[in-house]
Design a protein around this nucleic acid. Sequence first.
DNA 1: TTTACAGTGAACCAAATGGTTCACTATCAA
DNA 2: TTGATAGTGAACCATTTGGTTCACTGTAAA
Lengths: 120, 120
Amino acid sequence: MVHYQARLDATFAALSDVTRRGVLEQLGGSDASITDLAQRFRMTLTGMKKHVSILEQAGLVTTEKVGRVRTCKLGLRRLEEEAAWIEQHRQLWNARFDALDKLVEQLKRKEKADAQRKSR
Amino acid sequence: MVHYQARLDATFAALSDVTRRGVLEQLGGSDASITDLAQRFRMTLTGMKKHVSILEQAGLVTTEKVGRVRTCKLGLRRLEEEAAWIEQHRQLWNARFDALDKLVEQLKRKEKADAQRKSR
DNA sequence: TTTACAGTGAACCAAATGGTTCACTATCAA
DNA sequence: TTGATAGTGAACCATTTGGTTCACTGTAAA
């Protein structure tokens, strides 16, 4: 899986731009041409074309040109790998913080015991 | 929520680098100093410091300097928002593809009906 | 057959990224 | 006190990024 890391790179990079997340949002509602998208995001055709290409590269969008208009749709990749990566690390996070919680609990108990010992 | 988009930007960008994902992975196992991390990823201290700063900026890592060593740990942000964003869009994806599936089913049925009509 | 429209590609630009080296500070250890 | 160690910040560098303009192709419409 040499490509796994490269794919994560490309996808997270694609998602790290607010315009591109907006495009995905839009395409979730309905397909759109480059012109549609360029208008909605106040950008030149050329600029939007680049964004769409990046999303396409990451597999998040597919496009097809018929006549002179290129129609963009959501792609076949459904972010499974990215969801899995994030979920895995959320679990790591939680495990570590649970351990921390336990430690804090222990300290609290010890503190209480000390206080009681002192009051005797 | 003006900051919401900026936070997503920062987090996805932080995650889009293979070294930084590696650092998170490492910190999931145990805390580490800048020197530890720089060695493991064959990089100068200065270089690693920058990566750590980016992760810290995104809230994914926290650090504390005691004496001359800065110890890095997993931060308090647990990728909830990012997980939510991805999950929401996975649902959009699935909804659209389910609709597509239904359409295909319809076409298949129609085809079958046509074939039967023809054979009569 | 013009004319308008949708997209494309090359060239350019400023800013951000991912890295380095070098000079410096602060701390720990002998 | 004198080294060695850990990190920091500034400066630099090449590449990438996010955008533009401009010239062009192909298609649709009048």
